[in-house]
Design a protein around this nucleic acid. Structure first.
Lengths: 160, 160
DNA sequence: GGTTATAGTGAGGGTAGGACATAATTACGT
DNA sequence: ACGTAATTATGTCCTACCCTCACTATAACC
């Protein structure tokens, strides 16, 4: 079974190892980088969603992040305590609180966006155009396979 | 500034988005898959290291996972309680406890390894050989850039 | 033997999630 | 209009991960 059926199981394994290593390394880097801004990954995700939605009630953030409303309460508590957002009154629904950026919060999340662009340049710089395209195509293939396998979002999936 | 200096900042951004999405999707999938075996990501990492080291004192696992010894105590507590490992006496050092697989633990981690091979086949199946090679080369490039940028392991980095 | 280093744990704190229960408010149905 | 949902957010309580600091027991060194 050295070849025949496919490229070779061992090459697949080695490739998956690289993907997994990439996952770990990027995760760690994000965590450290955010910590320098006084943020955690979860809180940064919240700010990121808030950025492309404007002030929204917490319920919407819960749906966007895929966590319970209770978790959002905790995350917003932390972000309020550290001065990134405030809870403002909803104009029409007195149950809801509109999560709203402070100046510091807006500046931080803008800096995050800039940092991400910078990071992408660092990552992909020096990669010839054709190799770059091929890499992106490969990544798309992986994402497609994951979705087809019922893993990624886009699939409703009632789980188990 | 539509082109000229490089491929185009927007393409880099889009590519990074794919990488980030891959990170999230794979993380979530791993978490769910492990939960079906009664494991968490951290505990599975511990078992994974234990697999390629044989019975070891907890100190060694702490170094391998990059966490404090205290954290290992907690993880091993959980794994003992759920029947994956036991703490055995060290033959020569009475301070140390050798973390050792139970039958269930060994079987589970072997199944994890098999599942990973299976997963790699699912991911890469249907990718022509040349495209596969190109993807792997691209991934290596990314890992290299990360290391060069002082992100990945291999760099001592006294952190500060 | 005495000092120092190491292995592991107790105590306690911060963050991230969940389940369940509950108050306040809105929406709906008749 | 009035009662019954449904919805927003939170209180309370739980698991889990990770840390620091203090401490015990043991090993190692000299």
């Amino acid at each position: 079974m050295t070849d025949g059926t496919s490229v070779a199981a061992e090459r697949y394994d080695a490739a998956l190892d690289r993907v997994l290593e990439l996952v770990v390394v990027i995760n760690d880097d994000m965590t450290r980088s955010l910590a320098r801004d006084g943020l955690t990954v979860s809180r940064a995700h919240l700010l990121w969603e808030l950025r492309r939605r404007g002030p929204v009630p917490q319920r919407e953030l819960a749906d966007a992040l895929g966590v319970t409303a209770r978790t959002i309460t905790g995350l917003v508590d932390g972000l309020v305590a550290t001065g990134f957002v405030t809870r403002e009154a909803h104009p029409t629904d007195r149950r809801a609180a509109l999560v709203t950026f402070t100046g510091h919060g807006a500046a931080t999340v803008d800096a995050m966006a800039a940092g991400q662009r910078e990071f992408s340049r660092v990552l992909f710089a020096g990669l010839p155009a054709d190799r770059f395209e091929c890499l992106v195509a490969g990544l798309d293939h992986l994402l497609g396979r994951l979705r087809a396998h019922g893993v990624a979002p886009g699939t409703p999936e009632e789980d188990q």
